[in-house]
Design a protein around this nucleic acid. Structure first.
Lengths: 173, 173
DNA sequence: CTACTGGGTTTGAGAATGCAACCCTCTGTG
DNA sequence: CACAGAGGGTTGCATTCTCAAACCCAGTAG
């Protein structure tokens, strides 16, 4: 509770570092995963993540303070709370999905769960497996790893290469 | 070794948990960020992330073992290594980008760095700020938070609601 | 000979984590 | 009423991680 959101960001000024400050603690993202999956109660999150109860309490409090999670009572008298994602929390969907996609590809090639997609604004579309891709709204094209470069407008950045050279030699082991 | 250390995954079988097992340790993703940004040498990564040297050593070794990072000598005689992303590592680009996007939106609204985009396969396109979105390759539509549901084909999952109900109403702070 | 660079190890103290056990407030059930 | 859960945490303590600074070693520059 002595940890306000205005943490010191390590290294250089960077939104990735700032985001990890909030989300990078152990169990935080697994708790968020459970909230996405519709499990809003403490015990259920404990069971599904395997997190120690005290750690989960701490993480949920921190996420609440960071504005990712909201704790709302669902019963007075035995005062009980359940946890819900705020808008900021719901906006983590791309993040959890890219974690899921990466894990599916590189760690668990036979994934225990897949995502289904049906656009809300096109109900004619049948439900189908989600095959997610990054695209750029500006040009409408899919974003590939090498297509992105950095525009730095802040001091505290040192780098040599003019471009975040995504390597060249691609010899996967 | 393409065989990632498939340690024990906490909670239920899940690619997110598996991915966090590899990437969830402190400093791991910041190190990956530096590699994306073209900083391949130990000292530079230390300076830019602010990580303690011993931690960074440990993290880089773990990432190497997990097949995310590759250590290659760039000088014999004083034997020196530099670190590069493997294909699995480069495939983390969507993840770091979604972290960046989230941080930009919710934590550092005046971001110190932005991403520029130019599709390699369309060189006529001028360089422009990346405005990233998730889309589904199958239906071509943008993926919104509420459009996704789960298809579970593995035991060890408990959940009530039929759909990962993304909440209903919330207000950001 | 000295200083400096790059890439680490080592050390010791302090913080964070994991785990089990405990607590407190209701709501059944007999 | 007594007793047993369920839900949502605390508490205590041992283990592990993390941090910062110091140290090391090879080669090179002055």
């Amino acid at each position: 509770m002595t940890t306000p959101a205005a943490h010191h960001i390590p290294g250089r000024p960077c939104s990735i570092a700032a985001a990890l400050q909030v989300l990078g603690e152990k169990w935080a993202l697994l708790a968020v995963r459970e909230l996405f999956y519709g499990n809003h109660r403490f015990d259920r999150i404990v069971r599904n993540t395997g997190a120690p109860r005290d750690r989960l309490t701490a993480r949920l409090r921190a996420l609440e303070e960071a504005g990712v999670v909201e704790r709302r009572p669902y019963s007075e008298r035995p005062l009980r709370y359940e946890y819900h994602l705020t808008e900021a929390g719901r906006d983590l969907a791309p993040l959890t999905q890219s974690l899921l996609a990466w894990g599916d590809r590189w760690l668990l090639p036979d994934p225990p769960v897949t995502l289904l997609h049906r656009p809300a604004d096109d109900q004619d579309q049948p439900v189908h497996p989600l095959d997610a891709a990054w695209t750029c709204r500006t040009c409408g094209q899919e974003v590939h790893n090498g297509d992105v470069s950095l525009d730095i407008h802040s001091p505290g950045w040192d780098r040599e290469g003019p471009v975040p050279d995504q390597d060249s030699a691609t010899s996967p082991s």
